[in-house]
């Protein structure tokens, strides 16, 4: 005899629990898929992280494009 015989309740609820498991798994997959799509289609998602980074400093004359080639800023970051 099994140590803990399955309660009849568990049998009755199996369908419900399996359904919920499937729904939750699909939800996780959906969130993952949305994340992948957003990151691969999205714009730059880097934010300020209490550390000046060259990629976040706008280039002169262009407000949007990141400026990775400003030597002064790079030096500043390395110095920290």
């Amino acid at each position: 005899m099994a140590l803990r015989p399955e309660h009849e309740l568990h049998g009755r609820r199996r369908g419900r629990n399996t359904g919920l498991l499937v729904v939750l798994a699909l939800f996780v997959a959906l969130i993952f898929g949305m994340t992948v799509v957003k990151i691969s289609n999205g714009h730059m998602m880097e934010g300020f992280d209490h550390q000046p980074r060259t990629s976040l400093i706008p280039a002169e004359g262009d407000g949007d494009a990141p400026a990775g080639d400003i030597p002064a800023a790079e030096d500043e970051e390395e110095g920290q």
């Binding site: 009849e8 309740l9 419900r16 359904g19």
Partner: peptide, 18 residues
Amino acid sequence: TEANAYEGPVEAQFGDYI
């Protein structure tokens, strides 16, 4: 009769929530 037989009302299945 089973000691743990459940005599309550019919329980909702997953489809009922749908």
